[in-house]
């Protein structure tokens, strides 16, 4: 806003502009006549796409969640009725919503930390100074990240096969009983978590490696001179200095894991006995299988509210920790 005004004023004093205006002008473009202001036109196409196909639908979703929009409304919009909070009341009384919430929370609370811990372990191994073939190891660990989820979910389904699967074969070799990974309600979610960790750990690993590399080597040298061992170096140097990166990685992983969908869709269809039904899967089923779009958008907004709350909580916790003596 302010920049525009200075731009307009300097226009009056010619293209060269006054020195006073120059001081806080980010670029001479703002000295162009306002009718030419090219920045707006450059940004317009992308902003229009985002406004029309993201902002408007999000606002519409909020409105839809207060209506009984269903398959009849798709055929004839006039049957649409405003029902205010009815969808949200129904949500609270729907046992499948609570099942989906519990399963999603299980995936986030167990799978999230497991993923980040695996990423951190891999990052620390790869950050060892004397290690050779770093690029090779890094590339290999990153490969699952770029693979197509649907395709690798198909592969893992076979690895988890109770009779023919490699996983049970390996477990039998170690002396364990076979497990019906995707058929047993107790094991289906752990199986999905295991696959998710395999698929995702490489992503956070890259970010954590960058974080580790930004810690000055002289801190470790000083600690070694003082006789601190590996564990204490990790506790008193690595962890505190890695904290910002670690925090970023944790938040992003949490937000991503709340949106669990394709894994259960392809591997279990939410089963057995709804043991892997996630919130997004519930939204998909309600919306695109039963066409209860009003109810489905209420599920979507409940998910959004949960993610937002969890994110703010994380920020709160990290701020408390950052305070001295906290």
């Amino acid at each position: 806003m302010q920049r525009d005004q200075t731009g307009d004023r300097s226009r009056e004093s010619g293209v060269e502009g006054s020195n006073a205006a120059d001081a806080h002008l980010p670029s001479p473009v703002s000295r162009l006549p306002s009718s030419l202001r090219p920045g707006f036109w450059f940004a317009l196409p992308a902003l229009a796409v985002i406004a029309a196909f993201f902002v408007v639908p999000v606002a519409a979703a909020l409105l839809l969640s207060f209506t009984d929009f269903d398959i009849y409304a798709i055929a004839d919009v006039r049957t649409l009725r405003l029902t205010w909070g009815a969808n949200y009341v129904r949500l609270i009384h729907d046992p499948r919503f609570w099942t989906a919430l519990k399963n999603t929370a299980y995936f986030v609370v167990v799978g999230g930390p497991l993923s980040v811990a695996t990423s951190l372990a891999a990052a620390m191994l790869l950050n060892t100074r004397m290690l050779r073939f770093k690029g090779f190891f890094r590339t290999v660990f990153f490969l699952p990240v770029v693979t197509t989820l649907v395709a690798v979910a198909v592969v893992w389904r076979y690895l988890y096969h109770p009779r023919f699967g490699l996983l049970n074969y390996g477990l039998a070799w170690l002396g364990f009983q076979p497990v019906d990974w995707l058929g047993d309600p107790r094991w289906a979610m752990p199986a999905i978590i295991l696959m998710a960790v395999w698929k995702n750990f490489g992503f956070n690993m890259i970010i954590l490696i960058a974080g580790l590399q930004s810690i000055p080597e002289r801190y470790y040298e000083a600690a070694r001179l003082d006789g601190a061992g590996g564990a204490r170096q990790f506790r008193y140097i690595t962890l505190p200095l890695l904290a910002p990166t670690f925090f970023f990685v944790t938040i992003m992983t949490m937000i991503g894991y709340f949106q669990l969908f394709a894994e259960p869709y392809v591997m279990t269809q939410g089963g057995p006995a709804d043991a892997t039904l996630s919130l997004v899967l519930l939204m998909y089923e309600e919306g695109f299988r039963w066409w209860n779009l009003g109810f489905a958008t209420a599920v979507a907004f409940a998910l959004f509210a949960i993610i937002l709350t969890a994110t703010l909580l994380q920020f709160g916790v990290s701020r408390l920790r950052a305070q001295p003596g906290g």
């Binding site: 639908p57 979703a61 839809l64 939204m283 958008t297 979507a300 998910l303």
Partner: peptide, 24 residues
């Protein structure tokens, strides 16, 4: 200000827009 709004919009999960986008 537009840029700040864009950054803030990053916290909205994409699934929220899915259903109305389909209708649109």
């Amino acid at each position: 200000r537009t840029f700040q709004l864009l950054l803030a919009a990053l916290v909205i999960p994409g699934q929220v827009s899915t259903l109305p986008l389909f209708l649109m």
